Every structure is written in structure tokens, then in C-alpha cells.
Amino acid sequence: MSDSVSLTRLWLIDWFGHIIDHDPIRDELIRRPFTPNEYPDLFALAPVPLNLPSTAVLRKRSSLPRSLPDIEMVDAGDNLIGLRVKDRDTWFSINPRNELTHFNAASLMGWEKLTPMTFEMLNGLSALFDRTVATVLDAKGQECEPAHFRPEGDNVVVLNDFQFMMGRNADQLRAIGELAPGKELRVTLKGWEGDTQQTFTVKRLKEGASVAGADA
């Protein structure tokens, strides 16, 4: 990539709500459950604006000898992406039966689709999952339970009884993540299927969880 190109960090969440990380002991890419307010050691450096398909570079904070392949981010619909290995024409994929990943998938199917998340989007998702970070009220003013991922996958988050895809709500998650302590935001989330939507009020608490180290 040219030095004149602006780059951003993108963290990657898989089809089942696990985030892609790096195991420094085995020097391998792994998947682990999403944990609010944590920023994995593995991220992709991608150009801004992100026009797909686009070359991206996987980076790990630990400087270890095993190299990572040259990859291309490819549009997978609904603001999801696939990671294509350039020299093999294979795809990065996860194994939902364990925490392992690989670069050998023959095609771009569900398990190969990832949600790219900026720092602000991860903060916004954390606010929906963690009631020490923010309170979330439904349209009737009732406090919502912490969000969770739908175990069947499909990139779906469940907030009360409302289901939504992160990719379809990238701007909303970013806006939530940019909330200053003590401020609140009324946000309409687009549903997983059809034209459904629901409106919630998110208030960032004054004493939210620390995000120290995210830009280390």
C-alpha cells in the first residue's frame, strides 16, 4: 500500500459473534467469544474509504515469525466481507466446533463472512452488551437486558426480543460508540429480516468501562 493512503484498523467478528484474535503461544489466528470493551491483538489494516474489493493487511501486535498471507477484502453483502487469499484463491474461514481458523475454504459461504468493526463500532456494540457502560431503553422506556448473539449464527444480535445484523446497522453502532459519558442517543435499528425496525434510547454512563490500550 502507498504511504499516502489513509489506513484504519478493522477488527473482525465472525458469523457466530466470535471475534478473530491471535494466540501468541501457538502463533495462530483463533476465534473467541466477543467480550465488551476488549480489543483483540489481531486486526486488519484497510484503506479509508473502504472500496471493495480492496487489499488489506492482517496485523498482530505480537511480533512472531509466522507470516500471514496476502489477502483481499471482498464484498459479501449487508456490509459483510470475505477474506480471499490472493495467491491461492481460497478463503479465510472459521471452525464453529472449536476456536480454530484457517485460510483454505474453497468458497465464500456463511462461515467465511465477517463483520469489519471500527474502534467506534466495537464501543457501540459493547454499550449494548454491557450495562456498566450504558443503559438501553426500549420504545416504552423499559430497560433492556444486555444484548447477546443469536447462537444459530447469521451475524445476528438479540436485544430483548429484537434481532438485528451488525452489518446493516454499522452507522448506528458507530454513533452509539461515539457517545460521550452522560450523553444519550435515540437510535433506530434495522431488523434482521424484511423492513422491521425498533427504536432504542442508549445513555452512556459517566463511569463506563476503561478503553485504555485500544490504540496501543
Rank of each mutant, 00 (worst) to 15 (best):
Phe164His: 09
Val133Phe: 13
Gly191Trp: 01
Leu128Pro: 06
Phe164Tyr: 09
Asn160Met: 07
Leu122Ile: 06
Arg174Cys: 11
Thr135Ala: 02
Leu179His: 02
Gly153His: 14
Gly177Tyr: 13
Leu185Arg: 10
Leu128Thr: 00
Glu120Cys: 08
Pro151Asp: 12
Lys183Tyr: 05
Glu178Lys: 08
Pro151Tyr: 13
Val136Pro: 02
Leu128Trp: 09
Glu145Trp: 05
Glu193Ser: 07
Gln172Trp: 02
Glu178Phe: 01
Met165Ile: 01
Thr118Ala: 06
Gln142Pro: 00
Val187Phe: 03
Gly167Arg: 12
Met165Ser: 13
Gly182Asn: 04
Ala139Gly: 00
Ser126Ile: 00
Ala147Val: 04
Leu125Cys: 02
Gln172Phe: 08
Leu122Phe: 08
Thr132Glu: 14
Val187Ser: 08
Gly124Asn: 04
Thr196Leu: 15
Gly194Cys: 03
Val136Glu: 02
Asn169Asp: 09
Pro116Ile: 06
Gly141Phe: 06
Gly153Lys: 12
Glu145Phe: 08
Cys144Arg: 07
Glu178Trp: 00
Met117Val: 02
Glu145Asp: 06
Arg150Val: 09
Arg168Gly: 07
Arg174Lys: 15
Asp161Lys: 12
Asn123Asp: 12
Met166Pro: 03
Lys183Glu: 12
Arg168Asn: 03
Pro146Val: 00
Leu122Glu: 09
Asn155Tyr: 09
Gly191Thr: 12
Glu193Asn: 10
Met166Val: 11
Arg168Lys: 13
Ser126Tyr: 05
Asn169Phe: 06
Asp161Glu: 15
Leu128Ser: 04
Leu185Ser: 04
Gly177Gln: 11
Val136Ala: 06
Asn123Met: 14
Glu143Ile: 14
Asn155Thr: 02
Leu189Gln: 05
Glu178Leu: 15
Gly141Met: 07
Arg174Asp: 09
Arg174Ala: 15
Thr135Tyr: 12
Asp171Ser: 13
Asp138Cys: 01
Ala134Gln: 01
Gln163Cys: 09
Gly167Lys: 06
Ala134Thr: 04
Thr135Cys: 09
Gly191Val: 10
Thr188Phe: 03
Gln142Cys: 04
Lys190Val: 06
Ala134Leu: 03
Gln172Pro: 03
Cys144Gly: 01
Met117Phe: 10
Cys144Ser: 13
Asn123Trp: 14
Asp195Pro: 05
Lys183Asn: 13
Leu122Gly: 08
Thr188Val: 14
Leu185Gly: 04
Met121Arg: 09
Met121Lys: 06
Trp192Val: 05
Ala127Asp: 10
Val156Pro: 10
Pro151Thr: 12
Ser126Asp: 08
Ala134Gly: 11
Lys190Asp: 08
Met166Thr: 03
Arg168Asp: 02
Pro116Cys: 10
Glu145Cys: 04
Gly167Val: 05
Thr118Pro: 01
Thr196Gln: 14
Ile176Val: 15
Leu179Glu: 03
Val157Asn: 06
Arg186Asn: 07
Pro151Gln: 13
Asp130Arg: 03
Gly124Glu: 07
